[in-house]
Amino acid sequence: MKWLLFGLTLLAVCVFGLAVGQQWINPFDASGQDAVILWELRLPRLLTAFAVGGLLALAGAWFQVLLGNPLAEPYVLGVAGSASAGAVSGLMLMPDSAWVMSIGAFIGAWVGIVCVMFFSHLGANRMLLAGVVLAAFWSAVLALLLALLPEQGLFRAFSWMMGDLSHSDLPVSLLLLAWVVALVCGLLLSRSLDVLLLGERHAEALGIDVKRLRQRLLLLASAVTALAVTAAGTIGFVGLVIPHLMRLLFGSLHRAVLPASAIGGGVLLMLADSAARTVIAPAELPVGILTAIIGVPVFLFLLLRRPT
């Protein structure tokens, strides 16, 4: 029943996301100019939002288990910071290029991942500490770059840093393929992830090669984060809260949490992006602001309803 409602919500949000915008278009009766707007502008953007939201939520669920910390999220180990520094570096070097921020972000994200991989052999707590310190380092680098960035580039940089789906350079098909691959990989690891919830010692005693699992998980979660950041900048909140929300709704086992997060993250970002391009149309709000404005009350409401 829960899954049915979840599926219906997904469908409803898809239809809503297609219909709303600067002008209301009925997706079931669109022709001419409206059909072009609907299928060539709104649909790709909606699917991008779905894939990016799903990838962020998956990465969040993985980082939370990997680090044994429910406060972990995709950006906790500094990958977003290094990606942002990369994106702004690109903007400084080639301010007029359309792709330069995405390319810079992708390179920056992987520089951040390589840095984190040096600490993957440490236990969860020390790795988290290393990641937080690295994140602080990348924030400082980013602040330095922003201070040096010419004024005309600042708006583009800030807009990207707060999450922006309007200029996504990555093909939608690539993002959707990544969504599917990430979810399948996650499901293949789901039993091991469940066992890891018992802590590393218990997981090892139950036959899991924890060191190898942690490396795989770190690489997978980081790669997914890098792709999401490259596509849409840094969009907070989705990766932190959606996995928790899905655990409240579907329980703790990953064969349910992962598909629910992949879909739930997509739904939240589709909703937020629909609002972002509508609220102050024809201008747009950064979508990262709206993910928090929509998601926080929903999450707190569910938290309060659940018995302690």
Partner: peptide
């Protein structure tokens, strides 16, 4: 590691509770 777990069981510290596993789920694992 997997073969060892079929030969030796270890019961040590209580597992963490942050992620909301139920007793039934913990036993199934």
């Amino acid at each position: 590691r997997a073969e060892l777990s079929r030969q030796v069981a270890w019961q040590g510290s209580l597992p963490p509770t942050e992620f909301g596993l139920t007793v039934k789920q913990r036993l199934a694992l």
